[in-house]
Design a protein around this nucleic acid. Structure first.
Ligand SMILES: [Zn+2]
Ligand SMILES: [Zn+2]
Ligand SMILES: [Zn+2]
Ligand SMILES: [Zn+2]
Lengths: 160, 160
DNA sequence: CTCCAAATGTTATAATATAACGCTTGTTAG
DNA sequence: CTAACAAGCGTTATATTATAACATTTGGAG
């Protein structure tokens, strides 16, 4: 068990299960998890933190998998479209999905101190914004919900 | 009355009231609404749409108020910090606040077709994300809530 | 008037993202 | 088999968004 993300969990299992789910979903939906795409997903999964496209590119380039921006952006676009990763708008960065398989509208808790990100679900269409949207006749297609603040580990401690 | 934003409203009054509120709040809080800042707020207020920093800069430059990026970014930073404008993360763009004076956590409905933006309130800390945050011990400082979709005017019509 | 802080002008550059085009590879129809 | 095609990839170039840094101006406090 390690504390990656906000909660202690078996991260090794978390990674391998997610990779397995991604594999099987690609097989089922005739998507191609090519070496670059697979490696980018692994990189995103390694820590529960958001990585910028150029961070990814740095890793890829060090591993001989590509040196130019489009390499990273193409892989990230694929992962996002396939639902294997999400883009964090407030950070211009990307993170692996931790709810792979479930149909979900993701919401994120982003620590401004350690950059950890936790993915949660949202029920936006049932809350006040959903009411406002219905009242205005607005048709919601996609939601961005990101809360920034301090994760438990980064909050000032009272301990002497 | 004009349909700027999703709802018909007296936009002329909407603009002048907001400018007046901004003026009086600057007076009260010893903030300086300089010509550039004032003009940028007027530009943002003119339509209920989000404008990019370089759109703003284009206007300023045409009006002789400044030609370099920092001019626009400084004014926008001031307006955002003062609470007179909000940044839309999903668009890398800015919009005038329509709830000036009220203490609020803004949420936005963004039309992908006409780029209109409506500002609504959110009660994020009371919803599922708030529950998740409390459960994890995460301290929320700032929220980004943006719904993208189609405004009433841009939805396909059945009319013959 | 002098000093200081805030605002502005300006140059340069950083960080993020995409357009475009040609090559490779793997699949499939003939 | 092999021509035709689509998806992915390599590469160059460029677009878009944002900030660092430093000199100058401005407006008030002492
Ligand atoms: Zn994990
Ligand atoms: Zn997810
Ligand atoms: Zn209005
Ligand atoms: Zn507002």
């Amino acid at each position: 068990m390690t504390t990656i993300g906000f909660e202690t969990h078996d991260h090794h299992a978390c990674v391998s299960e997610t990779m397995a789910k991604a594999e099987s979903r690609c097989a089922a939906q005739d998507l191609r998890l090519t070496p670059v795409r697979r490696r980018v997903l692994e990189l995103l999964l390694a820590e529960h933190r958001a990585l910028g496209a150029y961070d990814i590119l740095g890793h890829l380039s060090a591993e001989g998998l590509g040196t130019q921006p489009p390499v990273a952006y193409r892989a990230l676009d694929f992962l996002v479209k396939a639902g294997f990763a999400h883009r964090i708008e407030a950070l211009n960065a990307y993170i692996a999905c931790t709810h792979l398989g479930k149909d979900h509208a993701p919401a994120f808790l982003i620590c401004r101190s350690c950059q950890s990100v936790a993915e949660s679900g949202t029920a936006l269409t049932q809350g006040r914004l959903g009411d406002a949207a219905r009242a205005a006749g607005f048709q919601i297609e996609h939601t961005v919900v990101e809360a920034q603040g301090l994760c438990p580990a980064c909050q000032p401690q009272d301990a002497a």
